[in-house]
């Protein structure tokens, strides 16, 4: 059974590229275009991993991350934060809120895949 991954980002083109990449690698991919949708899909689809953008409309990635971590049912969900803001404070804030990993945009697709596999224990 393939692992389920949710991509949450409001940048259409980024979503397209990552979705294509992960599908090619055989993952079951879901997509969300803003924070609220992302949280709803985490709860509904129970993905194994969420690729979470920070700057999203309606609910930002930090809040989504916090909400997921506050929910005991979702304790198995891995979270990989993606952000275009590469500041150290952002990184530590994300990790402090319970994210499992952190990648700064732009990233290499190989590194992203490696990080995804690492978080999924593959």
């Amino acid at each position: 059974m393939s692992k389920k991954i949710l991509i949450a980002d409001d940048e259409q083109n980024i979503v397209i590229s990552i979705e294509f990449l992960l599908r090619r690698e055989g993952f079951d991919v879901q997509v969300a275009g803003d924070g609220e949708e992302a949280l709803a899909k985490v709860r509904g689809e129970k993905p194994d991993l969420v690729l979470l953008d920070v700057m999203m409309p309606k609910m930002n990635g930090f809040d989504v991350c916090q909400a997921v971590r506050a929910d005991p049912d979702l304790s198995d969900t891995r979270i990989l934060m993606l952000t275009a803001k590469g500041r150290d404070t952002e990184v530590s804030k994300g990790l402090g809120l319970g994210a499992d990993g952190y990648m700064t945009k732009p990233f290499s697709t190989k590194e992203l895949l490696a990080e995804v596999r690492k978080l999924l224990g593959m």
């Binding site: 940048e11 980024i14 945009k105 990233f107």
Partner: peptide
């Protein structure tokens, strides 16, 4: 960074 991310990924 945002457009760069897409450009690099594609």
């Amino acid at each position: 960074r945002t457009p760069l991310t897409s450009i690099r990924a594609f």
